[in-house]
Amino acid sequence: MSEEKSKNDKIYRKVYILSDPGLIYPFIPGTVSGFIVKKGDAVVKGDQLFILDAMKMNNIVLSPIDGVVKKINVKIGEKVSKNDVILEIE
């Protein structure tokens, strides 16, 4: 494939990128009602991260990976929507 053609291709095609599993988004919009971890904590897959109040439930969000909590982007009581990164694990 020539370079020019592949450049053009990019306009039409969204190249599949695996999203970073360390960025934690809410599964549904809701309110963050509490954090179980804090910045700098080491977590393993399955550890509880924070509580997301949504769908009539205090949902406990679990860590999908092993790592360290690098950043927490929201405050307790804050409303979050689908595209908000709540916390970052590295």
Partner: peptide
Amino acid sequence: QPLNRAGV
């Protein structure tokens, strides 16, 4: 399963 995605 209420443990996951509120069981929706």
